[in-house]
Amino acid sequence: MSDPQHEQPAQLEPMPDDWRRALAVVAHPDDLEYGCSAAVAAWTDAGREVAYVLATRGEAGIDTLEPARCGPLREREQRASAAVVGVSEVEFLDHEDGVVQYGPALRRDIAAAVRRHRPELLITLNHRDTWGGVAWNTPDHVAVGRATLDAAGDAGNRWIFPDLLDQGLQPWDGVRWVAVAGSSSPTHAVDAGPGLDRAVASLLEHRTYIEALTKEDPESYARALLTGYARAAGERFGGRPAVAFEVFSR
């Protein structure tokens, strides 16, 4: 009889790769760079299209900068960060940082983005209350992650948010998977090795935020953090550095 305490965790499956377009929807600048952008680099290298949509400009994220100055700065850093991993389309939905509310307004905005970009793969960040155990998640992450999961279906239903039709946004029911980064229950992974250096460079574009967050050397901080995440995920992916996702099929 096996001992549950000594059972090895299940190996992660390779991510589906029969798609051409992906849309990543998150709450703040830097959300994608903390562990997900190595996968984005690999996808754009392979000729796939990836676009970013951010609910806020992260204007409440730096204590020493008032929102009116912080928001534009973090937007510039996000655009530069996205470019490092081959992403040129970056949109902002202008919800208020720190108090993003889950509900029809947020679902509508994300559904509209899905209809505009028509992705087969939709990506978001952990929508659960914690990061696993007692590490509490933020309300913005929870709201945007949950709304993104819901918007995958909203985008395909012409009778939900019918005003989007007046804007020329036809229903899109082509989302085949929603991949959640930062989940404590991952199911799939992408080899992070080829994109890891660019993921570090991408995170470093958020230099103002990093310098406010830690006194460590920014490059040492970014490399140690992302390498650690990739190594931990790789323990369930044949020993290769990896980016892990919890994948919901549709």
Rank of each mutant, 00 (worst) to 15 (best):
N126H: 10
N126S: 13
A147Q: 03
A135S: 12
V142R: 13
V87C: 09
Q167S: 13
R207P: 04
A55W: 02
P72V: 12
S202R: 00
R79G: 08
D97I: 07
F248S: 09
A189Q: 08
P67N: 10
V243M: 09
S249Y: 06
A199D: 00
P194C: 07
G47Q: 01
A111G: 07
F161G: 09
P29W: 07
V53E: 03
L164E: 13
S220D: 12
R107T: 00
P67Y: 09
G71C: 09
H206P: 04
L164K: 00
Y52L: 10
V90F: 10
D30H: 03
P241H: 11
W177Y: 15
V142F: 00
Q8D: 11
P104D: 15
S2C: 09
L213D: 03
V87K: 04
A232M: 13
A112W: 04
M1E: 13
L106A: 01
L149M: 15
R48L: 12
Q5M: 14
W159C: 12
E96K: 14
G156Y: 09
L169M: 11
R21H: 12
Y34N: 11
D154F: 07
H28W: 03
G228H: 12
P186G: 07
E211F: 04
P162K: 13
N157R: 15
V114N: 05
D140R: 03
R108Q: 14
D45W: 13
G156P: 04
R20V: 00
A242H: 04
D18H: 14
R20E: 08
D30E: 12
R198H: 08
G98E: 05
T130W: 04
P194S: 08
D154K: 01
G71L: 07
Q8S: 14
R76H: 13
L23E: 10
V144Y: 05
F161H: 15
S2V: 15
P29D: 00
